[in-house]
Design a binder for these strands. Sequence first.
RNA 1: GGCCCCGUAGCUCAGGGGAUAGAGCGACCGCCUCCUAAGCGGUAGGUCAUAGGUUCGAAUCCUAUCGGGGCCGCCA
Length: 581
Amino acid sequence: MNLFAEIRSLVIASLDDMVGAGELPAGLDTTNVAVEPPRDAAHGDMATNAAMVLAKPAGMQPRAIADALAARLAADPRIVTAEAAGPGFLNMRLAPSVWQGVVRSALKTGRDFGRSDLGKGVRVNVEFVSANPTGPMHVGHTRGAVFGDALAALLDFAGHEVTREYYINDGGAQVDVLARSAYERYREAHGLDPEIAEGLYPGDYLIPVGEALKAKFGDTLLNKPESEWLAEVRDFATAEMLQMIRDDLALLGVTMDVFTSEKAITASGRVEEAIDTLRGMGLIYEGTLEPPKGKLPEDWEEREQTLFRSTAHGDDVDRPVKKSDGSWTYFAPDIAYHWDKVSRGYDQLIDVLGADHGGYVKRLKAVVSALSNGRVPLEVKLIQLVKLFKNGEPFKMSKRAGTFVTLRDVVEQAGADVTRFVMLTRKNDAALDFDFDKVLEQSKDNPVFYVQYAHARVCSVIRKAAEAGIPADDAVLAAADLKKLSHDAELGLARKIAEWPRLVEIAARGQEPHRIAFYLYELASELHALWNRGNEDTSLRFVQEGDAPTSQAKIALARAAGVVISAGLGILGVTPAEEMR
RNA sequence: GGCCCCGUAGCUCAGGGGAUAGAGCGACCGCCUCCUAAGCGGUAGGUCAUAGGUUCGAAUCCUAUCGGGGCCGCCA
């Protein structure tokens, strides 16, 4: 139940009544009428801009509309006061019973409180991570993994039918490089000196792969030309790398629904099919590209090649799908892959990519637009860099030296919960500082801890109630006499809880899981504040010794906040702590 | 040369058409015989990069400019 949506319906219905009564002209567009929490709580519980939005089309003064609307709204039992203010806002105060109802609703529906049917019937594919299967996942992948997983969970919570998908780039030259690198480790496993030439992957993580190759193939691959071992070693090493990546993802609690292999797509002839389909639309042609403007690359020369007319779908220039020697470009399998996703019947595609893929976005959108006849929107979420700090000092990673910071390093040092939460406290298109010291600090400076602590306090209250002989399980709490929740400080917490379903929809619409993290921080703050009020005013404590009914009402409120924190952390993939030790 | 992201308090960042622009940190002043003070309350701190435009209304949308970062060729 989204209280704001309910009151908006009431406002719209009241506007319709006004039209019926001749107080407003018919045919007004109400899509921009909003019901929101006012910026300043002193203005009331909810505000609508209806009068300001409609004043001009209705040819009336905002104030006149607001006053007439206020009179109608005030007749509803949920609304205590409705008054025009400022430039034409209509501020409303809601009855305590409404807030009490929110608490009860949260307790009855539990962690499903706030679930939305916003995305009902919408099939969404979220593709994320898609790291090359050539090594362990590093920090950048970690953020993409966390973001994609949380976004998927958020969309699911908002009613979408979500598929989490990983695209395995196992078809390009990089897996050949992997094979050669692994082969050197295989030689090493036989006591030979590995020759890690420039361009090969130097990381130690391939040493066990070399051992495994030895265990599987013995010495049968030694001293053979590359052509005789490349395919087998490549397949073996790729599988090993993929398993390592799955293990890395598992450390973060990320599980994919679908893995799609580039190699398999290519082998199935989907690339040709996809290009032929585009050709049938007149979007493939032979031609030459304009040289890039500005500084010319030194070896630039005009060459005729097969091009995709992506400019017909919003791109800046047409893009090559074949090199001048007739082989596919990297883009071609991507076309096939996105065509594959479109043909699987999704209503919406989301690609979570590293920010270095920025130049790729328009052509991907063009592909999906063309191949779905504009039916399927593709959203590309670019994940900006993670800057790592330790002791206040940034530390660099060097892939060349094989000394990059891996996902495993981060999770082992910071823990999965902390890593996930921190990486979700920033929107995806802003760079993120990740400071190992700050992130592990157990204080209010650390939002992870702060939110966890709020949840733990709720659990503590319930334990305390049990010790005092007051039943406080969810069924009892849901049936508590919530009319006893009347203090403004208590209703304030209930108001914050009431924002949760609305926030879920806003976050899902914007595909912005970070909003969940910020909301949870605010909710935790409200709870901590109320808690402390109990230090000064004992009547505000949750547990009132010797008064079970009052205690249960207050604990119900705390528990409702706990339920929302738990649900929100669930979306972020963070475990709600029951106690802090 | 073109494209993308960012520019909001001393610092780190929310807010992305609506009222007097928010939070945390840092600074300063308070609050524990009492459910976890691992917390809470308060004070100080702003030309929302700049200049135009759209609008009843702009930090928010548009254009240009200036800063910071990233990307851009038949590479993957």
